[in-house]
């Protein structure tokens, strides 16, 4: 538990004020709110909502890469669909669309999940991070740079998902073993077979991130 807290605070240090303010209400704040008897927000950060009719657009707010977006969505739209088609964040890829390949991996409250199996309405209140969100201005983040330096891809289609799984691992565990790295990307298939370079990139990102 202690380890988790220190990682979370370490991670948040790099965030903008608005992002931090958001997390304080949606993440750790959820516990405090539940205790103080106010409306409960789940660990996802979402609260109760009235019934949304099928085929009708309902308004939700998604927090993606530190920015709130007011959006109109159908209940059946996945987070993947909204990221790509509404927000234009095409870094997140659709592969199988059924949770078997990992191309659509994003972070939700710092935890890797498949955007193809997450309804957009379910992500309301959560902090969503896509591969675009790892950029610092126009500079690649440490995990992205490590993938370039270690030549950790061929066709590149699985790469955003691989990067998000590694990013999620390092936010939870800044100094992973090789076994932990292999486990962390075991939900991301690479048909080109770049695995050994992906493992190297993850190890090198962990090292660079700790500097």
């Amino acid at each position: 538990m202690k380890k988790k807290q220190s990682i979370a605070s370490d991670h948040r240090r790099g965030w903008s004020i608005s992002r931090r303010g958001f997390l304080a209400s949606a993440g750790t704040g959820a516990v405090a709110m539940a205790v103080s008897g106010r409306i409960f927000a789940s660990p996802m950060g979402n609260k109760e909502t009235a019934e949304m009719a099928p085929d009708v657009l309902s308004k939700i707010t998604l927090h993606v890469n530190g920015h709130p977006h007011d959006l109109l969505v159908e209940p059946r739209w996945t987070l993947l669909h909204v990221l790509r088609e509404t927000l234009g964040l095409t870094g997140t890829k659709e592969g199988c669309g059924r949770g078997e390949c990992g191309a659509c991996t994003v972070l939700i409250n710092d935890i890797p999940r498949y955007a193809c199996l997450t309804l957009a309405v379910e992500a309301e209140g959560a902090a969503v991070t896509t591969v675009e969100g790892l950029l610092d201005g126009e500079t690649l983040g440490p995990v992205q740079s490590a993938f370039v330096e270690e030549d950790a891809f061929q066709c590149g289609y699985c790469t955003p998902g691989q990067i998000m799984s590694v990013e999620g691992l390092l936010r939870k565990n800044p100094d992973p073993s090789m076994d932990e790295i292999r486990m962390a990307v075991s939900g991301n298939l690479c048909r080109c077979g770049a695995y050994s370079h992906i493992f190297k990139a993850a190890a090198s990102a962990a090292k660079n991130r700790r500097k």
């Binding site: 109760e48 019934e51 209940p75 379910e122």
Partner: peptide, 29 residues
Amino acid sequence: SFSYVRPGTLQEAVQHLSAKGAVVHGGGT
């Protein structure tokens, strides 16, 4: 297509689930 609801109490959830064609969404995978 489907309608979607996220109730705040167990009692409401049970009521919604008693409707025809209603299913539980936990993690959703």
